[in-house]
């Protein structure tokens, strides 16, 4: 049975520099492959919402019509299951943790309009109709023809048509 057997380590520790780092004043060097937060390449997204359906904590919300992809940063548990499920591999998990904050943050990304297929047509058709003095009813039915009835896109040209008339 020894007495003060820890004295060598203790004395050595007294003269070594501290093991703790002064985070967040000194930035941290995360190893490659560390699971920090999710980033999306929004141009490749096809709004299939497989990531939203499979998220265990329900942090992702996908709106097909608007082409938006939202993630609640504080709900995400960094499990990276969405990156496995994405068919176009546009989701990546990169180092760098979400910083603590007082309120929950949601990040929203919207697909650029060129990549959304039904978006081009309804914008063109109701804009052409007012020239032929269309009734609001006709403008609406023209907008409803392309399957994704875009009320936002149809409403704007409609109000523009009303103003024009």
């Amino acid at each position: 049975m020894g007495i003060m057997t820890f004295r060598n380590t203790m004395l050595a520790n007294l003269f070594k520099k501290p093991v703790t780092t002064k985070y967040p004043a000194e930035p941290i060097d995360y190893p490659e492959g560390s699971r920090g937060h999710i980033e999306i390449e929004i141009e490749k997204c096809i709004s299939c919402s497989l990531c939203a359906k499979n998220c265990p904590s329900g942090a992702i919300r996908v709106d097909r019509k608007e082409g938006s992809w939202e993630i609640d940063r504080m709900d995400c548990v960094q499990c990276a299951y969405c990156t496995l499920k994405c068919p176009t591999k546009c989701l990546h998990i990169v180092p760098g943790y979400t910083t603590p904050d007082g309120t929950k943050q949601t990040d929203r990304f919207v697909r650029p309009p060129e990549t959304m297929k039904p978006a081009a047509k309804p914008a063109a058709k109701p804009a052409a109709k007012p020239a032929t003095a269309a009734k609001p009813g006709a403008a609406k039915s023209a907008a409803e023809k392309p399957e994704a009835a875009k009320p936002a896109a149809a409403a704007k040209p409609e109000t523009a048509a009303k103003e024009n008339q």
Binding site: M10, Y30, G33, S34, C79, I93
Partner: peptide, 27 residues
Amino acid sequence: ESLFYECWRIREHVLDVMEATTGGRII
């Protein structure tokens, strides 16, 4: 307490290995 800190300092080596190989320190 000094032994407590020493054991947890050794544990940091394990957590570094976990973060480098799996991406997370605990989960």
